[in-house]
């Protein structure tokens, strides 16, 4: 009999291996797609079709010099990337990837699932704000204050758009939400919530067109200006993992998770999940190549004066409809 902690460790190792590999290849995928959209060949030197590019990047990261500025606070400067990475990786402990007769494909079915993910994301913001502060120079500080304000603002709209789904499903468990979508995926009754979720999630993951954090033209590199080598790599991984997490959550909440389309249950659930999540990742890349960056005040105005009220309205209408039809 294998003890429970050994099973948990093996599961965690497998999930992290898969997720980090996904990160490496979604980075290549992104560079390739952006290149094609801009009529360039993209990375094509390392390995066939550029397939070994992620490994080359990782090797480069590892052998670069790890600098700490003299003005930096050494302890917090070293701690910050780990906070970001641990929170980004931690969310995968809660995400169920598929389901079979043996149980859930994932670490565990947490009853407060989606709330735990929000909790971890809110801790992840500390990585960015502490990194910016502890670097002891002005660009990281400005970048981190910006990004923290942006993430906190859009977290509200994001949460509000998710609550509509929670009301319809009547549960906060991610597995429960997917089960509730066996008939109709929530993208249909929660279309407004879905659109708000997509917009807010782009801002929440600090990706273009909301990548004010690393607006190179104004802030050099944002909060990670001073970071180099592997520590920069940790931030980089965390950022991509956050994008993958958000794609997974969008799949679970709005596209029915591993529920098959057209009743094609011959295709295993995990394939459906990967296809749907991949669709979202492609959409984020597509957005990045298409749209220019927003100006900071417009971003904040949009978040507070448009997105949040619409999300609140959507929530109230959903609650009213559920209250009337359930009674």
């Amino acid at each position: 009999m294998i003890p429970w902690w050994a099973i948990a460790l093996i599961k965690a190792a497998v999930i992290l291996f898969v997720v980090v590999t996904t990160f490496a290849y979604s980075m290549l995928f992104e560079r390739k797609i952006m290149a094609w959209m801009q009529l360039r060949p993209g990375p094509n030197r390392v390995g066939p079709w550029g397939m070994m590019q992620p490994a080359a990047d990782a090797a480069k990261m590892m052998f670069k010099e790890d600098l700490t500025p003299e003005t930096a606070d050494p302890l917090i400067y070293r701690l910050a990337p780990f906070i970001s990475l641990v929170c980004a990786m931690g969310t995968f402990a809660i995400i169920p990837f598929s389901e079979s007769s043996a149980g859930i494909w994932g670490m565990g079915n947490v009853n407060a699932g989606i709330l735990v993910i929000f909790a971890l994301t809110s801790i992840g913001v500390y990585g960015i704000s502490l990194a910016g502060w502890s670097s002891g120079s002005k660009f990281p500080l400005l970048g981190s204050v910006r990004s923290t304000a942006q993430m906190i603002s859009y977290e509200l709209a994001l949460t509000m758009s998710v609550i509509g789904v929670l009301i319809l499903a009547g549960t906060t468990s991610l597995v429960g939400i997917v089960h509730a979508q066996r008939g109709l995926w929530y993208i249909a009754p929660q279309l407004v919530g879905f659109i708000i979720f997509i917009i807010a999630s782009v801002a929440e993951t600090n990706r273009a067109p909301f990548d004010l954090v690393e607006a190179e033209s104004e802030l050099v590199g944002g909060f990670h200006t001073e970071y180099s080598g592997l520590r920069f790599g940790l931030f980089f991984i965390a950022e991509y993992l956050n994008m993958i997490t958000v794609a997974c959550i969008a799949t679970l909440l709005f596209l029915g998770g591993w529920n098959p389309l057209f009743g094609l249950s011959i295709v295993p659930g995990i394939v459906w999940f990967i296809v749907k999540a991949g669709l979202f990742i492609f959409m984020y890349i597509w957005l990045r190549t298409t749209l220019p960056r927003l100006r900071y005040d417009r971003l904040m105005n949009f978040g507070w004066k448009f997105l949040l009220p619409v999300a609140t309205l959507n929530l109230m209408v959903t609650a009213a409809v559920v209250a009337v039809t359930a009674g």
Binding site: T71, A72, D73, A112, L115, V116, F118, A119, S122, I123, V125, Y126, S129, L130, G132, W133, S134, G136, K138, L141, S144, V145, T148, A149, I152, E155
Partner: peptide, 26 residues
Amino acid sequence: VIQIVIYSGAILMLFVFVIALLSSGV
């Protein structure tokens, strides 16, 4: 979860904000 979201995510983040903006030196 609410303990983390409210206290760590919102209230303490406000502290960080104030500290970052008021004492930009380390």
